[in-house]
Design a protein around this nucleic acid. Sequence first.
DNA 1: CGCATTTAGTTGAACGTTCAATTATGTTGG
DNA 2: CCAACATAATTGAACGTTCAACTAAATGCG
Lengths: 160, 160
Amino acid sequence: MRTIDVMTRWLDPDESRAWRAFLHASRALMATLDRELQRDAGMPHAYYEILVRLSEAPQRRLRMSELAEATGGSRSRLSHAVARLEEFGWVTRQDCPTDRRGQVAVLTEQGFAVLAAAAPGHVAGVRRHLFDHLSRTQVDQLRDICETLVAHLDPDRRMS
Amino acid sequence: MRTIDVMTRWLDPDESRAWRAFLHASRALMATLDRELQRDAGMPHAYYEILVRLSEAPQRRLRMSELAEATGGSRSRLSHAVARLEEFGWVTRQDCPTDRRGQVAVLTEQGFAVLAAAAPGHVAGVRRHLFDHLSRTQVDQLRDICETLVAHLDPDRRMS
DNA sequence: CGCATTTAGTTGAACGTTCAATTATGTTGG
DNA sequence: CCAACATAATTGAACGTTCAACTAAATGCG
């Protein structure tokens, strides 16, 4: 016990407070947006993000792998998610013309319509719960901090 | 469509970039810590937090409601989680002496030992993936931002 | 070429969370 | 007092994610 404690550099009070604030804020923010999106659009935030990425892609279509990468999830997760979105009629799957292993997820008209209907309310939520309470300076600070973290986290991710 | 779009104040490029960076960073950070904790301690981060809260409470015990509040989750979630932690032998439940509806979650010796064994590695992970890449100033900025968000999010939470 | 390895994607089981319903106890106003 | 209401906690089903195992096709190399 002592041998472990001596070697561990625990969080100092500033760090601890920052860490707990971050945990609390990010969890509460995500939970709130998730709840609102589920209530208003009948989908969780994760599915909303999939639809957004598809809607931004050329032809509103992406390879499963690229879509998984873009939304920061595993291929397995995406398979399940797209299967669900297909049930809803918001996405369809097609064979990839250049790689016979591949599949392409395509946003349907109905999927696009659902997204277009959901987006204004969701953006309003992001404003109401996030940007409305931060100064321009804080938004810049948050961006810098998060982009720094992403730069270090993503390489980690690749080698696991 | 036009009537909706005209009324919606979309995110400007700065906001959009900040929002996406935040989404990416918080998701990647949590996923990484979750994976590490699952691998090294056999529990998800959510359960780690429950054990932390219990370990900090007087007598290492808390009412279910207080514990749910402290960990920022629903009572239902906590019921399920504590049931699981009880299976592991890390927590036990006792009747509350002052309220016959109440239950008190108590951290067991074994639960405390598991937490003590997991903590150094987890703290190292939080350092490695978060604090190592931020300046003192950025840590302060992050704390300010998150505490501001919490202050506005928590009242929302209460009236839902 | 032919065989091993890598890559794309899926599948089912286990897990943790949410949601709505339920039980049981406490609290409050008439 | 007691009837309505509020609070504490649990339960089971539905859902989304993870994990490991798997199929199939592409790639690399001897």
